[in-house]
Design a protein around this nucleic acid. Sequence first.
DNA 1: CTTAGGATTGAGACCGGACTCACATCGATT
DNA 2: AATCGATGTGAGTCCGGTCTCAATCCTAAG
Lengths: 364, 364
Amino acid sequence: MSTDGSRRRDVTVADVAKAAKVSKAQAARALGNYGAVSDDVRERVLAAAEELEYRPNELARSMNTGKSNTIGVVVGDIENPHFGLAMRGITDTAKKSGYNVILINTDEERAAEVDAVRVLLDKRVDGLIVAPASSLETSHLQQVRESGRPLVLLDRAATGVDVETFAVDMGSISYESTAHLIEAGHRRIAFVSTVRTDAPYVAGMKLDSSQISDRLDGIHRAFDDAGLPYPSDLIRLSAGDADSIRRITRELLGGPDPATAIIASDGLIALSVVEAIQESGLSIPDDVSFLMYDDFAWTRLTTPPLTVIAQPVYDMGIAAASALIRRIEGRKSTGPAPELVATLIRRGSIGAPKDAEVLSQAGG
Amino acid sequence: MSTDGSRRRDVTVADVAKAAKVSKAQAARALGNYGAVSDDVRERVLAAAEELEYRPNELARSMNTGKSNTIGVVVGDIENPHFGLAMRGITDTAKKSGYNVILINTDEERAAEVDAVRVLLDKRVDGLIVAPASSLETSHLQQVRESGRPLVLLDRAATGVDVETFAVDMGSISYESTAHLIEAGHRRIAFVSTVRTDAPYVAGMKLDSSQISDRLDGIHRAFDDAGLPYPSDLIRLSAGDADSIRRITRELLGGPDPATAIIASDGLIALSVVEAIQESGLSIPDDVSFLMYDDFAWTRLTTPPLTVIAQPVYDMGIAAASALIRRIEGRKSTGPAPELVATLIRRGSIGAPKDAEVLSQAGG
DNA sequence: CTTAGGATTGAGACCGGACTCACATCGATT
DNA sequence: AATCGATGTGAGTCCGGTCTCAATCCTAAG
């Protein structure tokens, strides 16, 4: 073996220069491919570099170019396929432009996010993509702006921070899908989300997640437009972990005036909700209708396949990364931002509510 | 606004030192919390730092400590929840020890992996976690070893590279579950995987993925031990994309001597296989039995719930990251490596094969 | 045969911290 | 009072590159 396990001192430009019998400056130029270098020198330097297995130290390079070719990504939960897919869009795009990605998971904790942002800034990333845990407490994001480092938001907006945000228009898709449910006869439509809130839900309250606020607004508007009262007792936030979600689902379906349709705010929640529905011995859509956000492949596999609100998550990742990189490189937008629209994919989990059938039977 | 959008020059120790009227060295000591500093100086420096909003440049710090507090992670597909979960284990563990994670996705391309490893080495990460796309072509991993930088493998082993590998023993779980299928009466057991191969499968051939090799070995052994012939025509590798997998599934289930059970090599493959089965109008487990690797939550939601081979993916991530960090910090292992065992979770997707029923009816 | 002007080249500054080293300072020791 | 060890302190080097600047080398124009 030519090497042992211990870390050997790295080969530097100086070493290469010495071996090629040229100055450090010339070696650096040949290696870095800048400035004027004669063919003779270039050849010798490159040969020496090859021979010594020279590898540039990107840290040193970054330090005086001020560019690290790295972007920082801060998400709430990489385990969630939603972010996994967005991440894929980001890394694919970053790689294409020669950037690397540092990923930090915050577990949706604002404190962790504040920390993450600071660490990334300290590491001198060239720009940041953040899916803010809170749309309200955004001072740390404002600080990023003030540091002058490019920032772009994913999934959720941040009030008071003037940056590009890549997310679908939740209000309109929520309106549309709620209208769809109302049209199917539903009046008792529940909404389950894990956004943490201090107090139980009351209409119009400010929420940490702009996404959820927008969705609730959409639901609200759909009810208003249909001239119907808004069943805000069925809005269940702070749903917590899987067990808690199952319990909430049972509550929603039990009681004197149960929900006839449930909207799950994301794929993870959906799993627990559907599970609880099945455990209760109820069937979709005969006993309860079901609608969820995010179109994961497995939603086609259940019986019945689930009606979902599909978001172009991968494209959102691409758009966010592209915009960020464009900004880092000081280029102007080459055109309008790509439209990121959510679509309602009707499969089999929405039907008429049970009481409606009873009514129509009674009526007929 | 106190600041405009342009990148302002960063505040350095020198600036802080000047403001605190001490030498750069003293300021650095107070800030870096090392060496001897009088209370008076420390206070003044800290106050000045606060006032100027000083933030250390981690790049500069890394450069002369030789530590970046960063680990590189190279995986094939972060979109795959398997890796998403492992990633979660890695980032959680890294954060706890003060490390950050640079993630590179290779799309299971070896060339991209070679590149990824080189980039990370150039960025002077303190260590690497790699899920090798190929267990056979491993020279780039060998180079990591030779560079002296700590390396740890996830999910797949690499022949010829002597490093810790964190993966479950695929051979034994594959044996166990195949035996289970055989016992249920199955003889025509298909195995579908996306590992790329140059030639169609023949028993004992070397595969890029040690995981898949081990699984096939397990299947083989189970058949041997049962004194049965090994249906290697049902081993379908290089399965490709979703469409291709669906086509393969149809092939497997059509023809004169169809498979009576299908094993899907991972969650993504499983989706397409199950979909194809459903499209064919066949039902699980009456017409075909089904078994898959990875226990995702949605597998409990299908009808019937799917029998799976659960791997402790999150724990694998934790174990890999812990071991790597231990190695980076030169500490000895504090005990035996945690056991990473896969388990067969029997739910409802395995039944008796159809022809067996026919036979027994005919016999009875 | 000069000589202007571009191509090459090397010395050395610099990026922003960490760290060495020589030089105070100061209370405690004998 | 002289000595000693333990702090404190600042000047300056170093990490490994990039980049400026002045000096040197050519080559073709005058």
